[in-house]
Design a protein around this nucleic acid. Structure first.
Length: 193
DNA sequence: ACCGGGATGTTCT
DNA sequence: GAACATCCCGGTG
């Protein structure tokens, strides 16, 4: 089946609805792509674990934009992480992409991630997948629905999301830890941790 | 296998 | 000055 780009309507819902539906979809970045196997939902201002919790700032401005935008942020002094904006403009909702199963461009990924000792570690973490796919702050604010040249986008190749996705609380947070808003493909070896 | 610590810099209190 | 949606490496068992 041909790969079809997701439309804005796909993203224009609550992040906790969109997140599990993204499992099985394909993230494309130039010559590299991978199947999404792990995600986390970040809700709007009422979610204390979300960057949106304290309202718009220069850093999180993209989060409050249109659904279907790519929100990329810098953390721990060296890592980039990629999210998809969901909901309505102004909500500040997003889904963090946490792990991919690499599908194409493996040679490029290996060159970008010399620390990966096995292919299963190429994209098994939010910062790892950005490194492997070459996603940086320069990609913040990209429109995944209507990408420009050198496109980053998300497609559907017919793989359905798991009927019963695995779930847990979110990883690495100090606030909002109680919400079970992480989803993953059960048994997939590329899921982080 | 598990555990501890260092890297590194932007953002916000 | 502290926190941070992380990762990697080197120790020990």
């Amino acid at each position: 089946m041909a790969r079809q780009r997701l439309t804005r309507g796909f993203y224009a819902r609550d992040s906790r609805d969109v997140a599990p539906q993204l499992l099985g979809k394909v993230l494309v970045a130039g010559p590299c792509c991978g199947r999404i196997v792990e995600v986390e939902a970040y809700a709007g201002g009422d979610d204390p674990g979300s960057h949106a919790h304290r309202g718009p700032t220069r850093r999180n401005a993209t989060m409050f934009g249109r659904p279907g935008l790519l929100y990329v942020y810098f953390t721990y002094g060296m890592h980039w992480c990629a999210n998809v904006v969901t909901g309505d403009e102004g909500d500040g909702q997003a889904v963090l992409l946490r792990a991919l199963a690499p599908l194409a461009g493996l040679e490029v990924m290996r060159a970008r991630r010399p620390a990966a000792r096995a292919d299963r570690q190429l994209c098994s973490g939010p910062a790892r997948l950005c490194q492997a796919l070459g996603i940086t702050g320069a990609d913040d604010g990209r429109d995944l629905v209507r990408p420009g040249a050198g496109g980053v986008w998300i497609g559907d190749d017919g793989m359905p999301p798991p009927a019963e996705p695995g779930w847990s609380t979110r990883i690495g947070l100090s606030k909002g830890v109680e919400h079970p808003w992480r989803w993953f493909v059960p048994g997939d070896p590329h899921v982080s941790r």
